[in-house]
Design a binder for these strands. Structure first.
Lengths: 113, 113
DNA sequence: GAACTATATGTCACATCAGACATATAGTCA
DNA sequence: TGACTATATGTCTGATGTGACATATAGTTC
């Protein structure tokens, strides 16, 4: 079964080195976390840029100070949806979000691939 | 966090740019939906590019065919986290995701990612 | 020191999302 | 026709995210 699936994959055009993307679940997880952290930093930067406290931002988001703190801390209980919608409510454009996300590739050491 | 029925209508409609005014969606809500739709399209494109069925993709994501269908349909029950992590498992890079997201504003027709 | 502000952390009830399953629809082919 | 494949849709239950609250920590001003 698995052999068949893999054969189909490679026959469909997967580069040999890229097939590991399917198997490397933890690698995808890492990139996802990096993306969230990038959005977290972007949120904090944007909040400070407008001179808002976490409480003031929470009011604007109809949320709470503790959740804003967790958003900025990259807490696992914060979803990407919440981060993105919060950034949008702070005036970010989709291009701004794209910029924040673009550099979030996984980093395994001092050098980035 | 108010959504659900609006998103359901919108996801079913596909005339996103005009639905915003029809339903009176906020700009942030609209952009978030557009971003999710952009990721949905990107997921479908990527799956087809590798010649996978929804069932085959579901197996690799450790998910189900119905959820893959909902992801690609832009169903409101699908989170951005799920879309992004699925794309990452399909080999997308953070730069790929940035590209998909960047054009998600003021879009009125389909486009490949 | 007290009082005040800003941020962080832990917990909880409730809402939302997840995978799974059944089933419906649509297209293909013998 | 019927069998087969791919995709879509509805719903259930367990898992996860959310806002709210209490409380802790840190810095500032008096």
């Amino acid at each position: 079964m698995k052999k068949t699936k893999r054969e189909k994959l490679e026959a469909a055009g997967w580069a040999v080195g890229s097939v590991k993307e399917f198997l490397g679940l933890s690698e995808a997880d890492t990139v996802l976390i990096e993306m969230k952290l990038a959005l977290s930093r972007s949120l904090r930067d944007r909040r400070k840029k407008y001179g808002l406290s976490q409480v003031q931002l929470a009011e604007r988001l109809h949320s709470s100070q503790s959740r804003v703190a967790k958003m900025e801390a990259g807490d696992p209980s914060v979803s990407m949806d919440l981060l993105v919608s919060s950034l949008l409510l702070l005036g970010a454009s989709s291009a701004d979000l794209a910029d924040a996300i673009r550099g979030a590739e996984k980093r395994t050491g001092p050098r980035a691939a």
